[in-house]
């Protein structure tokens, strides 16, 4: 390779690495700081030691973070809420998409158009009236009848099950599936639901992964505004609300960093393992849009 090409190559890598550092330094800082006592954390942040695991390194912050807030409960809540929402969302949205693509019924086009239009309604603009609705909805649960959805798991799940993006993704995918498959099984006497379950779903692996990942990012990471409004009881709080506990009395930055690490690292590991699927799922929103 000639010298100037080699130099060009080196410069490109230098640029790539330099940019990578911009994206990675806060994350490294978070993890490293979570291992340091506060005094050292503060003094270290005036030098590059902020990024190095040097000095008094210990898991103390993690232990005291667990003492301070019911972290396992919050993680359980977040995982439960996110998990149930994803399962129901995949099922109901794919079912709806199936109906839009393969069945023909009156008003189909109009309803699909209305659903697509909700795509440009930001959740934040409907949060306040939605609060009024859930505040007055009855619920029959294990403890009997309640006349409000406030302070519960379902208030954090049900409003988020169906959304335009998930339905749209499934519709796009189903449209590209070969139609004769379906006709063949209909001739064999299968009901529409059997076609959905036995023919379509087994072919939908990639789009299910995509939709699940997008839903996961939307749910797990964004549980702030809505839970602030509808959950006052500790036992139903998701992880993002748990942060409040670290600001009440005796704020310790080391503990906050430990908490941030606890709620972030599993997602990052998940992402690193499945990064192709993560990136493909974002890209798929772009290809046909």
């Amino acid at each position: 390779m000639p010298a100037h090409k080699l130099l060009g190559m080196a410069l490109r890598y230098l640029l790539l690495i330099w940019i990578a550092m911009i994206f990675i330094f806060p994350i490294v800082f978070m993890v490293i700081s979570s291992l340091k006592p506060d005094l050292q954390l503060l003094s270290d942040s005036s030098s590059l030691r902020a990024f190095l695991p040097v000095g008094d390194i210990s898991p103390t912050n993690y232990l005291s973070a667990f003492d301070r807030a019911p972290i396992l409960l919050f993680i359980f809540n977040s995982v439960l809420i996110t998990g149930i929402t994803i399962v129901f969302s995949l099922f109901l949205c794919s079912l709806a998409a199936f109906s839009f693509v393969f069945l023909s019924w009156r008003g189909q086009g109009v309803i699909f158009a209305i659903i697509l239009a909700t795509f440009i309604v930001p959740f934040e603009t409907i949060a306040v009236p939605l609060l009024l609705i859930v505040n007055n909805l009855p619920w029959i649960g294990l403890e009997g009848i309640k006349n409000s959805w406030i302070n519960s798991y379902h208030v954090q799940i049900i409003p988020f099950i169906a959304d335009a993006l998930t339905i749209f993704l499934f519709v796009q995918y189903f449209r590209d599936l070969p139609k004769d498959l379906i006709e063949a099984s209909r001739i064999d006497g299968a009901t529409w639901f059997q076609v959905y379950r036995r023919v379509i779903m087994p072919l939908s692996g990639p789009i299910i992964a995509t939709a699940a990942i997008l839903k996961f990012l939307m749910m797990y990471n964004n549980q702030l505004l809505w839970p602030i409004m509808v959950v006052q009881e500790e036992s139903y709080r998701p992880v993002m609300l748990g942060l409040q506990y670290f600001f009440q009395l005796n704020t310790q930055w080391g503990e906050i960093m430990a908490y941030l690490t606890i709620i972030t690292i599993p997602v990052l590991i998940f992402y690193l393992l499945l990064q192709k699927a993560f990136i493909a799922s974002i890209a798929s929103t772009g290809i046909k849009g």
Partner: peptide, 19 residues
């Protein structure tokens, strides 16, 4: 089959939007 999802979209997106 589209009914459950449409109902949810209607109750938790469209209704509050008009509200």
């Amino acid at each position: 089959m589209a009914l459950p999802a449409c109902l949810l979209v209607f109750t938790f997106l469209i209704l509050p939007f008009f509200m």
